[in-house]
Computed example of a mutant assay.
Amino acid sequence: MRISWITAAAILVSAQASAGLEQGLATCSAKADKLDRLICYDTLAGSVKSAPKVTSDATAISVTSVAAVSKAQTVTATGTTVPANIEDEFGRAGIKKDQEEADKEINKIYLDVDSIKKDVYGSLKISFTNGQVWKQSDSKRFKLAAGQTVYIEKGAFGAFYLGVKERNSTIKVKRLK
């Protein structure tokens, strides 16, 4: 019987806490000024950090958790205003870009190879002179040497391909560092 009361109290308190947290998040997201929004989120996160962990004592759960909920609900609400540029950017990723935006986007970079290692599966791990580290993610054979200049270009669906100007082949790579 006592366990069911403890469970019921814990469920009630957690439902109140999540409702207060959702209301606080909605309030913070409605702020138009970036700094005010950040301060609001930091205040809300501070109140969540101070919320106690669930223990087996039902009175301690209800008293301390209700105090944390009331602290989270003290965030003042303001009018909900959405900046106009958010609506302009919504869904724009699928629209073709004009020439100026397409020119700004980087699709290919050239890098100098610093060192090359192979893992136990034969995949290349390539370190570049600028500190980047990329790893081969397909099983093709590809010869590289330290000091060689290579390019990495964007592919479809977020893929990246490494190639050498002198050859007409590429390998699929992913960035590690």
Rank of each mutant, 00 (worst) to 15 (best):
S70L: 13
V164S: 05
A51P: 05
K97E: 10
R37T: 00
L21R: 03
A67I: 06
S14E: 05
R92P: 00
D57L: 03
D138Q: 01
I39W: 03
L44A: 07
D33S: 07
A51R: 08
S18T: 12
V82D: 00
V133I: 11
I6Q: 14
R141M: 06
F90D: 03
V120L: 14
W5I: 11
G147P: 06
L25V: 08
N107R: 11
I126W: 02
E89D: 11
E166H: 08
A58G: 12
G122E: 00
I109K: 01
Q99H: 09
A146K: 13
T55Y: 06
I11S: 15
N85H: 15
L144R: 01
A9V: 09
T64I: 01
D119L: 00
E153Q: 07
K96C: 11
K125V: 15
D98H: 04
A45N: 14
G147W: 07
K53N: 14
K143R: 08
S65W: 04
K117A: 10
V75I: 10
F160G: 02
D88Y: 15
I95W: 06
T43I: 02
S14W: 05
L25N: 07
V48Y: 13
L44M: 06
G79V: 09
G122L: 02
N85S: 15
G20N: 01
G20E: 05
R141Y: 10
P83D: 02
A156I: 13
Q73E: 04
T81L: 15
V150D: 00
S56G: 12
L144F: 05
I171P: 00
K140Y: 05
K49M: 08
S139R: 08
T7Y: 08
K135E: 06
C40Y: 01
A30C: 06
E89N: 11
E87W: 14
G131E: 03
T149V: 10
A68G: 05
R37G: 01
G158M: 00
D42S: 13
K31Q: 10
T170Q: 11
Y110Q: 12
I116R: 00
Q136Y: 01
D112M: 13
I3V: 15
I126T: 05
L12G: 14
M1W: 13
I106L: 07
K53W: 15
G79N: 12
K154E: 02
A58F: 14
I86K: 03
R2G: 12
S65H: 03
M1P: 11
A77Y: 09
T149L: 07
L124P: 00
D112F: 05
G122F: 04
A60R: 13
Q99W: 08
E153Y: 03
Q136K: 01
P83M: 00
R37H: 04
K154V: 01
S127Y: 09
S169C: 04
M1H: 14
G147A: 05
S123D: 07
V54R: 06
S47C: 09
G163E: 03
A8H: 11
